[in-house]
């Protein structure tokens, strides 16, 4: 059925690229896909958003109606989109930037420092989106990892292919090994 993914944060976090990779992987897997993104001045440093809709059937309405999966990489994006996630949906919040989880009834809210992990492991914040993709892949099971890796390697510059693959696999391992904690909606989190 129709599965709606919203990737949100700020310009420069690679959300558009992440969306295109998910869309390409799902399409290679034989699904119908629609990918859209925020556009214009706001995508240069301000709030940024990319959406992917995946379906076995033809996709009519090309925007998220109620998200099955939300990735939020800023507090602003969390505040704006957390309440538009389905109750049985999943939210993944980057705790490097998100310090407060809004009240709501999203069943699975994962809360993990994607950006800090990227800086620690790769000395570059830019890999946070790809670690996130690994976690999304493993927690949603909506697209096979092999297809995501193929789409990822197809879209990134040659000299960064290996690091991107490691970043993706890092996300998968962290989730598989139960290293991604759940956050509690409505609770403020101790700021570091």
């Amino acid at each position: 059925m129709r599965y709606e993914i919203r990737l949100s944060g700020m310009g420069g976090q690679g959300l558009l690229l992440a969306g295109i990779i998910v869309a390409e992987a799902a399409m290679a897997q034989g699904k119908n896909v629609v990918q859209t993104a925020s556009y214009g001045p706001e995508s240069r440093g301000g709030a940024s958003r990319s959406e992917v809709i995946i379906s076995e059937k033809a996709i009519d309405y090309p925007a998220v109606i109620e998200a099955d999966y939300l990735l939020a990489m800023t507090q602003e994006a969390t505040d704006k989109f957390f309440h538009e996630v389905k109750p049985h949906g999943i939210a993944l919040l980057d705790s490097t930037w998100v310090k407060e989880i809004p009240a709501g009834n999203v069943e699975s809210t994962y809360y993990f420092p994607l950006t800090e992990t990227a800086i620690e492991k790769f000395e570059k914040a830019i890999f946070a989106n790809i670690i996130g993709l690994g976690i999304i892949c493993e927690s949603s099971k909506i697209v096979e990892p092999d297809y995501l890796i193929a789409a990822l390697l197809d879209r990134v510059p040659k000299r960064y292919k290996e690091m991107n693959q490691v970043a993706f696999e890092t996300g998968i391992e962290l989730f598989t090994n139960g290293k991604i904690p759940k956050g509690v909606a409505g609770q403020a989190v101790e700021t570091v």
Partner: peptide, 10 residues
Amino acid sequence: DAVVGHIRER
């Protein structure tokens, strides 16, 4: 329109 111009699809 701006949506259809920028949408990515199969």
